[in-house]
Computed example of a mutant assay.
Amino acid sequence: MHINFEFKARLRDIAAAEKILLQQKPLFVGEDHQTDTYFNVANGRLKLREGTIEHALIFYERTNTAAAKQSNVMLYQHKPDEALKQILAQSLGVKAVVDKRRKIYFINNVKFHFDNVEGLGQFVEVEAIDKDGSIGLDKLKEQCLHYQNLLNVTADDFMAGSYSDMLLAKKSSLA
């Protein structure tokens, strides 16, 4: 398990935020088309990520607060395999499916996502990642705050829940 300190935000001008980040000369990993299938679980969240760059089974726990927050993550990277998705869907049931296009950048241990999510719009996510406990929570918080300020993210921009939560809320409000 590793620790992230992270935030998700909806910005008025996401292109401006990406331009600011590009001035920092981040490593561009690529643009990924990702389908995240969320499964019904008793606690936390479990999703299967199927992308052109990233493939992973991800379990995570975090509070749904509209602020930067700690997330405890377990990640299993795998080769694409339809059988895994079928096993999870049949045994747990599908909660939600999120379809997004994601630009992925890194600066050291900090990962940046510029997301265009089907049915929801555009977001930026910043994840300060400590994979082995060598960085510490205080440093992760400091990194998040630095990039929050750099990208002009205000408290009003923060999103509390996951994309799956937002899609489910939108779906229930239309019903």
Rank of each mutant, 00 (worst) to 15 (best):
69 K>L: 05
91 S>A: 15
87 I>A: 07
74 M>L: 12
90 Q>I: 01
87 I>Y: 09
109 N>Q: 13
109 N>H: 15
92 L>R: 04
69 K>Q: 04
82 E>I: 02
97 V>C: 11
100 K>Q: 10
86 Q>H: 10
77 Q>M: 04
98 V>P: 03
105 Y>M: 14
96 A>M: 14
100 K>P: 02
84 L>F: 01
96 A>D: 08
92 L>W: 09
81 D>R: 09
77 Q>P: 01
86 Q>W: 03
68 A>E: 06
90 Q>T: 13
103 K>G: 05
75 L>D: 02
80 P>M: 03
81 D>F: 08
80 P>A: 10
71 S>L: 14
107 I>R: 07
70 Q>S: 11
107 I>P: 06
88 L>P: 10
102 R>P: 04
108 N>Y: 12
75 L>A: 08
83 A>L: 12
67 A>Y: 03
72 N>D: 10
108 N>E: 15
73 V>N: 03
89 A>P: 10
82 E>F: 02
86 Q>P: 01
73 V>R: 07
99 D>K: 08
95 K>A: 13
89 A>H: 06
105 Y>F: 15
86 Q>I: 00
84 L>A: 02
72 N>P: 00
89 A>C: 09
77 Q>F: 09
82 E>D: 13
85 K>L: 08
72 N>E: 09
80 P>F: 00
75 L>W: 05
107 I>S: 10
90 Q>W: 07
76 Y>H: 06
96 A>W: 01
82 E>H: 06
101 R>I: 12
69 K>G: 05
99 D>Q: 11
106 F>K: 11
99 D>F: 08
102 R>Q: 11
94 V>Y: 03
102 R>M: 06
68 A>K: 05
91 S>L: 15
74 M>G: 00
73 V>S: 05
86 Q>L: 05
105 Y>G: 08
98 V>W: 00
104 I>F: 02
101 R>Q: 15
96 A>Q: 15
71 S>D: 03
92 L>F: 14
109 N>M: 02
94 V>G: 07
